[in-house]
Structures are given as C-alpha cells and as structure tokens.
Design a binder for these strands. Structure first.
Lengths: 137, 137
DNA sequence: TATTGTTATACTCTATAACTATA
DNA sequence: TATAGTTATAGAGTATAACAATA
C-alpha cells in the first residue's frame, strides 16, 4: 500500500460518507442528489439547459426531465433567450432559492460533527489539500 | 467563512468529483454506483440481504432488485442460510470478483492524476485527516 | 408475533432515438 | 446543415405496502 493508495481509499470512503449525508437530506425534501445539485448551481446564476447537462455529465433529455419535475414543484422556471430563439434559460424561483438555502444550512449542520473533530489549523490544511486534488488543472 | 465552512465546501466539491469518476467507470461496465458498491462489499465477504441494505441505506426490496439484476448478469449468487431458513446470503461469483478487481484498477488509474499532484507526505496527511473526518466515532 | 426476504406498484433517473424549431 | 431543446420509449434505481416463509 503506497501513500497514494491510502489517500485514494480515504477519498472514496469519505465520498460515500458525504454522499450519504447529501442523499439523506435531499430525501427529507423529496429531492434527489441531482436535483440538489441543479438547485445549488442555480443559486447564483441562471443557466442554459445544455450547459447544465454538460456540467452534470447528463444527457440533455435527462436534463429536460429534471427541469420539468422541479418546475412542476415551483422550484425553478424556464425563459426563452431573446437573442437565440433555440436557447432556454433556467433560473431558480424564490421558493427554489429558499429551499436551496435551507438545504445548505442542513448540510452544514449535518457535516459539523465530522468536521468538528479537526482543529482549525487542520481544517485549513484539509481544505488546501482537497483544493489541490479536486482542481481541474 | 470559517475554516469549517471552507473544509465542508472542499469536501462536497471533492465528493462530486470522485462520484463523477466512479459513475463514469461504472457506466463503462454497465454498472450503477450502487452496483459497484455491492460488488466491492462482496469482494472479501458474503453478506445477508438485510445487512447489505442497511449498510447502503436502502430498503430491502431495493436490495432484492439490485441482487436480481447482478445475479442475472452472473456477478453474484444467493445461498440459503442453513441455521435460519429465512436468511439469504449473497456472495460474488468468480466473474464478479474479476470485474471488481478490474474496476478497482481503473478507479486507481483514474484518480492517479488528481492524487499525483500531492507529494507523499501530503498524501499521508490527507489520508490521516480524511480518516478522522469519515470515522464513525 | 416478529423477522427475512420477495413481489406488486408507482415514481424518479437515465440514455437513445426521433422529432421540432431556430440558426 | 448544425444546434438547442423536447418527447417517446425503455430500463434501472428507489420506496411503500402487501405478502410468504420461517422463527
């Protein structure tokens, strides 16, 4: 076992742990992990259907369905782009933004005990190391 | 933004990154993330249906379906427990074990570039910090 | 009665293929 | 022709409720 193997194992284990937390909190609001991510993305910007799909690694038809269901729940809305009539832009409604905020609070509360096992200096170090690992460069 | 918030953000971001890698590799073998996890669990032990479901946070009926489909593909098998006739134990077939090994190799290869941005001492530190965060204590 | 597992049902998630509208 | 998006279709993943078999 090399240091890289140990780090990979820890990364994968932590990934499942965090995914469990996110999935559980999403389910408490009848939201899938993907719906949670969509709402998270739309918190601070509107986005095109295709861009959302590409960012999440999904087919555009899948994205259409996700948007349909979230829109039916009043969490987001579609708007035609005026310059290019083919483009549809998606943005969160006030209800969607409010839910996004609530979910974020719950996620922080849920992760607090785990993260709280580390001292502030350790947290800084962890954040720094993860930034390097998950940077796309 | 506190140190804890920064660490949480980095954790969630890394989680999506790693999940993306695992999902992509699973899809290349027509396996969902959950199927990947089931096979991973059964690499070194057999397990009861209920225990698998509890460990993965799924309903037992969901677990039944997952096992059905994996069994239909020849990746795992069911066996009645002799002491308790209600219990069904699940274990990986040779084909399942071989696929599990192949998938693990691919995951390590896929994560290598990201993890390779850190020096060995940093990797040790990262693994140690993640162990603390993702420990159930 | 309680537990283990399966089945029936209904919905969401997902991709592929075919389609419409716009460029 | 190419691009953006939707729709039709099919299959996997998921939970709830009802069930059968065993304890």
């Amino acid at each position: 076992m090399t240091a890289a193997d140990d780090a990979m194992d820890a990364l994968v284990r932590t990934t499942f742990e965090v995914t469990g937390v996110l999935t559980r909190i999403g389910a408490a609001h009848d939201m899938s992990l993907t719906q949670l991510r969509v709402l998270g993305i739309l918190r601070d910007r509107r986005a095109r259907v295709t861009d959302l799909a590409a960012y999440l690694g999904l087919d555009k038809s899948t994205m259409s369905g996700l948007i349909d269901r979230a829109q039916r729940r009043g969490l987001l809305t579609r708007a035609k782009n005026l310059e290019d009539g083919r483009v549809v832009e998606v943005y969160a409604t006030p209800a969607g933004l409010e839910l996004a905020q609530r979910v974020e609070d719950e996620i922080r509360r849920a992760l607090a005990p785990a993260v709280g096992r580390l001292a502030p200096e350790q947290l800084d170090r962890l954040a720094g190391l993860l930034d390097v690992v998950s940077s796309r460069s």
